[in-house]
Amino acid sequence: DIIVVALYDYEAIHHEDLSFQKGDQMVVLEESGEWWKARSLATRKEGYIPSNYVARVDS
């Protein structure tokens, strides 16, 4: 799995977006363009995230 960590807070604009806080970790489910589908490890919610707001966690 690709794990990313939030670099900034993000408040969902559309209902399919995923809100998150700086430091939150998410599993990337699908990478396509600038918006990635991800699942929050904390809340288990899924939605689209702006890929420029996150960084990959080296395992």
Rank of each mutant, 00 (worst) to 15 (best):
Met26Ile: 05
His14Val: 05
Ser19Ala: 09
Glu46Gln: 08
Glu30Ile: 10
Ser51Pro: 11
Glu30Lys: 09
Gln25Pro: 05
Ala6Thr: 02
Lys22His: 05
Glu11Asn: 11
Asp24Glu: 15
Val27Lys: 09
Leu7Asn: 03
Ile3His: 06
Val4Arg: 02
Tyr10Thr: 01
Glu16Leu: 12
Glu11Tyr: 11
Val5Asp: 02
Asn52Asp: 11
Ser19Trp: 04
Leu29Ser: 05
Ser40Asn: 13
Leu7Met: 08
Tyr48His: 05
Ile2Cys: 12
Lys45Arg: 11
Trp36Tyr: 14
Phe20Cys: 02
Met26Thr: 00
Ser32Val: 12
Lys22Ala: 11
Tyr8Ser: 07
Val27Met: 11
Phe20Leu: 02
Trp36Leu: 13
Ile13Trp: 09
Gln25Ser: 08
Leu41Lys: 06
Arg39Asp: 01
Phe20Lys: 00
Leu29Glu: 04
Arg39Asn: 02
Arg56Tyr: 14
Asp58Met: 10
Val27Gly: 03
Glu31Ala: 15
Val54Asn: 00
Tyr10Gly: 01
His15Pro: 15
Val5Cys: 08
Tyr10Asp: 00
Val28Arg: 01
Tyr53Arg: 09
Ile3Glu: 03
Asn52Met: 10
Glu34Lys: 12
Arg44Gln: 15
Ile3Ala: 04
Asp58Gln: 11
Asp58Ile: 12
Met26Trp: 02
His14Cys: 14
Tyr48Val: 06
Ala12Tyr: 02
Ile49Gln: 00
Asn52Ala: 14
Ser51Val: 08
Gly23Leu: 03
Ser32Phe: 13
Lys37Ala: 05
Ala38Asp: 01
Ser19His: 04
Arg44Ser: 14
Tyr48Ala: 04
Ile3Met: 08
Pro50Trp: 07
Gly33Asp: 06
Lys45His: 09
Ala55Pro: 02
Glu11Thr: 13
Asp9Cys: 07
Glu30Cys: 15
Val27Phe: 08
Ala38Gly: 05
Met26Gly: 00
Asn52His: 13
Glu34Asp: 14
Ala55Val: 14
Glu16Cys: 15
Glu16Ser: 12
Ala6Trp: 01
Val54Ala: 03
Trp35Cys: 09
Tyr10Arg: 06
Ser32Asp: 12
Tyr53Gln: 07
Gly33Gln: 05
Val4Leu: 05
Arg56Ser: 08
Glu16Gly: 15
Val28Phe: 03
Tyr10Asn: 02
Glu31Lys: 13
Gly23Ala: 03
Leu29Lys: 05
Lys37Tyr: 15
Gly47Glu: 01
Ile13Cys: 14
Glu46Lys: 05
Ile3Ser: 03
Gly47Pro: 00
Gln25Phe: 15
Ala12Gln: 05
Ser19Phe: 03
Lys37Arg: 14
Asp58Tyr: 09
Leu18Trp: 01
Leu7Pro: 00
Leu29Tyr: 07
Asn52Pro: 04
Asp1Cys: 15
Trp35Ala: 04
Tyr8Asn: 06
Leu41Ala: 06
Asp24Val: 04
Lys37His: 09
Arg44Lys: 14
Ala55Met: 14
Ala12Val: 02
Val54Tyr: 02
Tyr48Met: 13
Ile49Arg: 00
Glu30Pro: 03
Ala42Ser: 12
Glu34Trp: 15
Ser51Phe: 09
Ser19Val: 03
Ile3Pro: 03
Lys45Tyr: 07
Ile13Ala: 10
Ala6Arg: 00
Gly23Pro: 00
Glu34Arg: 13
Asp24Phe: 02
Asp58Lys: 11
Ala6Gly: 06
Leu41Cys: 14
Ala38Cys: 12
Trp35Thr: 07
Glu46Leu: 07
Asp17His: 15
Ser19Met: 04
Lys45Glu: 13
Val4Cys: 09
Asp24Ile: 02
Arg44Pro: 05
His14Leu: 07
His15Ala: 15
Leu41Phe: 07
Tyr8Gly: 04
Arg39Ile: 10
Ser51Trp: 10
Leu18Glu: 00
Val57Phe: 10
Glu16Lys: 10
Glu46Thr: 12
Arg44Cys: 15
Tyr8Leu: 09
Gly33Met: 04
Ala55Leu: 09
Arg56Gln: 08
Leu18Ala: 01
Asp24Pro: 00
Tyr10Glu: 00
Ala42Met: 12
Leu41Trp: 04
Trp35Gln: 07
Trp36Lys: 06
Val5Asn: 03
Lys37Glu: 03
Val5Tyr: 10
Gly47Tyr: 01
Asn52Ile: 08
Leu18Tyr: 02
Val54Met: 05
Asp58Ala: 11
Tyr8Val: 08
Glu46Asp: 06
Ala6His: 01
Ser40His: 15
Ser59Trp: 12
Ser59Asp: 11
Leu41Gly: 03
Ala38Ile: 05
Tyr10Lys: 03
Ala38Met: 04
Ala6Asn: 00
Ile2Val: 13
Glu34Tyr: 15
Ser40Lys: 11
Ile2Thr: 10
Glu11Met: 12
Phe20Trp: 01
Arg39Gln: 09
Val4Tyr: 11
Ala55Asp: 08
Gln25Trp: 15
Val4Ser: 02
Val5Phe: 08
Ala38Trp: 02
His14Tyr: 10
Gly23Arg: 02
Thr43Trp: 03
His14Met: 07
Ile2Arg: 11
Gly47Thr: 00
Pro50Met: 07
Val28Lys: 02
Ala55Asn: 07
Phe20Ser: 00
Ala12Asn: 04
Ala12Pro: 07
